[in-house]
Design a protein around this nucleic acid. Structure first.
Length: 216
DNA sequence: TTATCGATCACCT
DNA sequence: GGTGATCGATAAA
C-alpha cells in the first residue's frame, strides 16, 4: 500500500499544483541521483516554496523568477518535476524542484533531508560533516551530498539518472510545520511569506538562521 | 552555546 | 559594483 509504483506522470501531476500545497506532499519523499560513483538518496525533511511572478494571489519578491525569465532561472519556467540548480556565494549550489503548471515558474527549494542511501559517497562529497544528520542539513549541503551542480539544472528529476518516490499513505508521514523562509531579505522573508515547510521534530532539519538585517 | 566573518562569483542595476 | 534562497572556521562567553 504505497505509492512506490506511481508513474512519473502521476508524480508530475502532483507537482503541478501550487508549491505551497505540494510542499507537505514532498516532505518524506526520496530523491535519488545515480552516477558512476554510485547512488545517493535523500529523504526530504525541509523545503521552501518560491512563486512565479504571475502568480494569482501574491507576488513573491524573494523568488529568483520575480523579475521574469533569465538564462539562470529558465528551468523554473518549464514543466514541473525538473531541477532548477543555481550557484551562489561563489561556492555553493542549491537545488529546487519545479512546481506548478508549465510556465508559472514556481518551485520548491530543497533545504534539508536525511541521506538514506549512499552515505559514504555523500560524506566524501562534503567538505566537513560531524554527524550523519548534518550530511544534508541545509540547501547547499543537500545539493553537495547528491552531487548536484548547475550542469544538472533543467534536467528531469523523475527520469534517470534521477528518481523521486513520494511517501506512502498519510499514516507513514509526520506532522508538517511551517514558518518564514530562511535567508530571504526584505518583505519576502517576513511572516507574510510563511512558506518554509518541515517535518516536525526531524533531526535533519536545518538550524534556523535569520536573514541578514536590512538597513532601515 | 551563540556570534561574527571570510570565501568568491553569477547575476542584476 | 553590490548583493546573495550559504557554510564552516574561529572567537567570545
Amino acid at each position: 500500500m504505497t505509492t512506490q509504483g506511481s508513474s512519473p506522470e502521476a508524480i508530475r501531476g502532483v507537482l503541478s499544483g501550487d508549491p505551497r500545497d505540494v510542499a507537505p506532499l514532498l516532505l518524506g519523499a526520496v530523491l535519488s541521483h545515480r552516477t558512476s560513483e554510485g547512488t545517493v538518496s535523500v529523504r526530504l525533511s525541509e523545503v521552501e516554496a518560491y512563486l512565479g511572478p504571475k502568480h494569482s494571489d501574491q507576488p513573491d519578491p524573494g523568488s529568483h523568477t520575480y523579475g521574469g525569465p533569465t538564462a539562470r532561472n529558465a528551468p523554473m519556467f518549464g514543466p514541473a518535476g525538473h531541477l532548477y540548480v543555481y550557484f551562489t556565494y561563489g561556492m555553493h549550489y542549491c537545488a529546487n524542484i519545479v512546481c506548478g503548471p508549465d510556465g508559472v515558474a514556481s518551485a520548491l527549494l530543497l533545504r534539508a533531508g536525511e541521506v538514506v542511501a549512499g552515505q559514504a559517497l555523500a560524506q566524501s562529497r562534503r567538505r566537513a560533516s560531524r554527524s550523519p544528520t548534518d550530511l544534508a542539513s541545509g540547501p547547499a549541503r543537500l545539493a553537495s551530498a547528491l552531487g548536484l551542480t548547475t550542469a544538472d539544472s533543467g534536467r528531469d528529476a523523475l527520469a534517470e539518472p534521477f528518481g523521486l518516490e513520494l511517501p506512502g499513505t498519510s499514516a507513514a508521514r509526520s506532522a508538517v510545520a511551517s514558518g518564514p523562509r530562511v535567508g530571504v531579505a526584505g518583505d519576502g522573508g517576513s511572516a507574510d511569506y510563511p512558506w518554509r515547510f518541515w517535518l516536525s521534530g526531524d533531526p535533519t532539519v536545518s538550524r534556523y538562521k535569520a536573514a541578514r538585517g536590512r538597513t532601515v
